[in-house]
């Protein structure tokens, strides 16, 4: 790999931007830290916003994942607009032990769709804290139903036991990658995959 590095025009791996959304205390940061550093932090400290970057192998292809871990509690929802806008895929997280957090996903979903102006934006509904099944307040079926309604996958994870943690990130990245390929095909007429971001903007606007 060093050989690659030393070549002057370095070919940067594809970059996928993932946003973590959900109410406060559902485990967004815990999932992120588990995915990034294989660690589980017990202490709860509300996040404002934090960004992470990691190189990973996605089905044999080296890609870079950008994760924006966001605040669960935000005084004004509009503040989220900007970073929702920058996201290419969303992990919408609730805690299966707290119905309120599950209800809140509806609002997050609506805001994302509004900001992205895209019904098919890569999106996963994630029920976290599956290790606390005895305290469960949201049934699997309930959550699955909602996901079906939205046309998105539903996965239950545990940041504590690392159950399905990699799965949600990799699944979402695969969706993002597929989305980007489609867009390239549709806008293949002009300029190759360079400036694809700009192209993306144009189609939306």
């Amino acid at each position: 790999m060093e050989k690659n590095m030393s070549k002057k025009p370095t070919v940067q791996p594809a970059l996928h931007k993932v946003i973590m959304v959900g109410s406060g205390g559902v485990g967004k940061s815990a999932l992120t830290l588990q995915f990034m550093y294989d660690e589980f932090v017990e202490d709860y400290e509300p996040t404002k916003a934090d960004s992470y970057r990691k190189k990973i192998l996605l089905d044999g292809e080296e890609v870079q994942i950008d994760i924006l871990d966001t605040a669960g509690q935000e005084d004004y929802a509009a503040i989220r607009d900007n970073y929702f806008r920058s996201g290419e895929g969303f992990l919408c997280i609730f805690s299966i032990t707290e119905d309120e957090s599950f209800q809140a996903t509806q609002e997050f979903r609506e805001q994302i769709l509004r900001v992205k102006n895209d019904e098919n934006i890569p999106f996963l509904l994630v029920g976290n804290k599956s290790d606390l099944n005895e305290k469960r307040k949201v049934t699997f079926q309930e959550a699955q139903d909602r996901a079906n309604k939205w046309g998105v996958p539903y996965v239950e994870t545990s940041a504590k036991t690392r159950d399905h943690v990699d799965k949600v990130f990799y699944d979402l990245m695969r969706e993002i990658r597929a989305r980007k390929k489609d867009e390239n095909k549709t806008s293949n007429g002009r300029g190759k995959d360079k400036n694809k971001k700009k192209k993306l903007k144009c189609t939306i606007l």
Binding site: K48, D50, S51, L68, T70, I79, N82, S86
Partner: peptide
């Protein structure tokens, strides 16, 4: 650096 969103969020908060 990948911090634009983080910084901008903080700026918005500060503005408010």
């Amino acid at each position: 650096g990948n911090l634009l969103q983080v910084v901008w969020r903080a700026m918005q908060e500060e503005f408010i």
